[in-house]
Amino acid sequence: MELIKDGKRIDGRAPDELRPIKIEAGPLYRADGSCYLEWGGNKIMAAVYGPKEAIPRHIQDSTKAVINARYNMASFSVEDRKRPGPDRRSQEISKITAEALENVILTEMFPRAVIDVNIEVLDADAGTRCAGITAAAVALADAGIPMRDIPVACAAGKVDGVVVLDLLGDEDKKGDADLPVAIAPRSEEILLLQMDGHMTVEEFDEALELALKGCREISKLQKEALLKKYKTFEEE
């Protein structure tokens, strides 16, 4: 199957083009902060609870808050039914999400507390870890949790020998490489960088630059979503 034809990808996008993204801040009434994100075929709901007392007590840190991220894919989120509950992949994504977020949250302000970040994947079409981090970041800002920056994530990769931005499901499965990146956009500090597949050093540099470009675009959308909610709130 040809994934790139006449310089266009299977969904008609250019190699450096993102899928359409829609971000809504604060859709959940009972959560301290929440976000609903649609990114191409991905539909993600993120909710933040806390900071609150960390239970059981042995997980408490007397110097800072603990970030407890939970990434979960709904059983109906993929074509074949996914067996519900945590698996190897979702445990890994939960861990890397918590570590990415820990670097921007001012955890030292809340000793002995825990901040629960729940990421629920309702519909999946490649790039859910990036979408999850992006949604969780908006939910954290919505929860009023102090952060140095609003983190943002985006993936780049290689398909049919061409470096492309924001891989689609088929491109992810049949492509040559995938490179998810999360950054703190103000300083462009890298919070997460993973890679699978093969790329040359030049291709890697190109893919990283492309992913950073994607992150910058998505960061604007995150800020617009937050301002949309709170500017109207302020006017009322």
Binding site: D32, P51, K52, E53, F110, P111, R112, A113
Partner: peptide, 8 residues
């Protein structure tokens, strides 16, 4: 209207 942060 929020749960207290940290030790109770």
């Amino acid at each position: 209207n929020r749960e207290m942060a940290g030790d109770k």
